[in-house]
Design a protein around this nucleic acid. Structure first.
Length: 444
RNA sequence: GGUUCCUUAGCCAAGUGGUAAGGCAAUUGACUGCAACUCAGUGAGCACCGGUUCAAAUCCGGUAGGAACCUCCA
């Protein structure tokens, strides 16, 4: 398996820390609102990566967090005159519902900031003790200049960053690039620490959760959206380098952004599409197919055209599978358990090139073509047909797409037979009626 | 101003030195009672200019256009 590592900007052969095991972490949402479809791209991409590993015998330990302490949550809570936990819990539930509806495999753990506070406070304490963090009026900031490789991930150097950095008014920081580990606060949820009451900064939690959930300082894969590269991931690395001399993960993976009709989705443009609405409209299968139609690092544009194309393509895949299953039942073929390993291997090989889903799709289409030919060959080679069918279904499983096999009822079978009989008798009006009935049931 | 990246047929999208995958749409043919499904065929020389090379969409330089990031947006 080859993966593009954002840390080296190169495609590298994936070598796990522990043979046949993969530890991966993806930054989760700040739960202050529903998520939009852009947020579903990392969910789908990294779930697909996980499935790809699992299809090859890896055991995957996959953790993603919930940021349930944040200014945005506090603001939302004030707006609604609710407790912050009510807000957070509401959107955590909503997020989980999205995961379920997108057929995302169950995560190993979904830690929350509020449940990780002792560790976060201890971690910040260590950074202070070791001189990597300093106190100003109860706030704690990370001293960026003390980390030699700061900027490694985003490919920037500290001097360039400083030129571009917006200088905050009345900044208490030694350096504008220094980031907050702890903020003193008088509003919202807060915890008491040796240096004062307040709440943690965003960048610390992920590091602490990784250390805690995996019980080690270096994991295999850390993923997230391209926009998190700087400063969030850069800052995670800085903290980990400071205390543990490791960049947390051997492979850093970043998915490209999602655009709507060529524009970035944003509230100001008024083109935000909520994930729940999008999934309700198109269904999980189409959404996943659409999200995987471009390689994960490329930007992906969502438009009516790309949505229609995804629907049509996926429909073709399901059509041939359905035709196989209907025909097998009508001809009472059973007991075939064959599997076309070669076709499946082609698919895996394509996918192993840095999750090259477009080439994975290509292998599905190629396999479909062979299957369509076989299905129209007389006599049918059911061993071959079943093997191809099962291979395609397994490919879809890696993509997280679910195919439901149609089960013919006695009535269905009768209608098929009647359709055929009417055709033979050249009673086309009657034939069309049966055809339409079967079509309405999605059987042809 | 800095950093990273992109520009491949009407549309989506692979390919990163050896002569352009796949899909959608279109179109021709076969199959069909008609149709759908399906199969077979048709279509680009890779933004532009210049360079390196026996050979470039692929490497280098430049031009034009576009995107993301530069303190908390996946």
């Amino acid at each position: 398996m080859k993966l593009y590592n954002s840390l080296s900007n190169k495609i590298e052969e994936f070598v796990p820390i522990v043979p046949n095991e993969v530890s991966m972490y993806v930054c989760g949402p700040t739960v202050y609102n529903h998520v939009h479809i852009g947020n579903t791209r990392p969910m789908i991409v990294f779930d697909t990566l996980r499935r790809l590993f699992e299809a090859q015998g890896y055991q995957v330990h996959f953790v993603s967090n919930y940021t349930d302490v944040d200014d945005k949550i506090i603001n939302k809570a004030r707006e609604e005159q609710q407790e912050e936990t009510v807000i957070a819990n509401r959107y955590i539930e909503a997020y989980q519902a999205i995961r379920d509806s997108l057929n995302i495999e169950k995560l190993s753990a979904t830690p929350r900031v509020t449940q990780t506070m002792p560790e976060i406070i201890a971690f910040i304490g260590e950074l202070i003790d070791s001189g990597y963090a300093y106190l100003v009026d109860g706030d704690v900031y990370f001293r960026v200049s003390k980390v030699a490789n700061y900027g490694e991930l985003s490919g920037q150097n500290i001097d360039d960053l400083q030129v571009g950095a917006r200088i905050e008014e009345n900044s208490k920081k030694e350096n504008p690039l220094d980031f907050a580990l702890w903020k003193v606060t008088d509003m919202g949820i807060k915890w008491s620490t040796p240096w004062g009451e307040g709440r943690p900064g965003w960048h610390t939690e992920c590091v602490v959760m990784i250390n805690k959930e995996f019980n080690k300082h270096t994991i295999d894969i850390h993923g997230g959206g391209m926009d998190l590269k700087f400063p969030h991931h850069e800052n995670e690395i800085a903290q980990s380098e400071a205390l543990y001399h490791t960049s947390i993960a051997n492979y850093w993976l970043h998915n490209g952004m999602l655009n709507q009709d060529g524009e970035k989705m944003s509230k100001s443009l008024g083109n935000v599409v909520w994930a729940k609405d999008f999934i309700a409209r198109l269904g999980s299968n189409v959404v996943r197919w659409l999200m995987l139609s471009a390689q994960y690092r490329s930007p992906l544009n969502i438009s009516d055209d790309t949505i229609e194309t995804a629907k049509t393509e996926l429909n073709r895949v399901f059509t041939v599978l359905k035709q196989v299953d209907v025909k097998a039942q009508r001809e009472q073929i059973s007991g075939q358990e064959s599997f076309d390993q070669e076709a499946f291997d082609h698919f895996i090989k394509a996918m192993n090139e840095d999750i090259n889903t477009p080439n994975g799709f290509m292998e599905i289409f190629e396999t479909m073509k062979v299957l369509n030919r076989e299905l129209r060959q007389q006599p049918n080679d059911w061993n071959r047909i079943t093997g191809l069918r099962n291979a395609i279904i397994k490919m879809l499983t890696v993509l997280g797409i679910v195919y439901v096999k149609p089960i013919l009822t006695a009535e269905d079978t009768e209608q098929f037979n009647a359709w055929e009989a009417a055709r033979l008798a050249k009673d086309y009006q009657k034939a069309d009626e049966f055809r339409q009935a079967l079509s309405a049931k999605g059987l042809i």
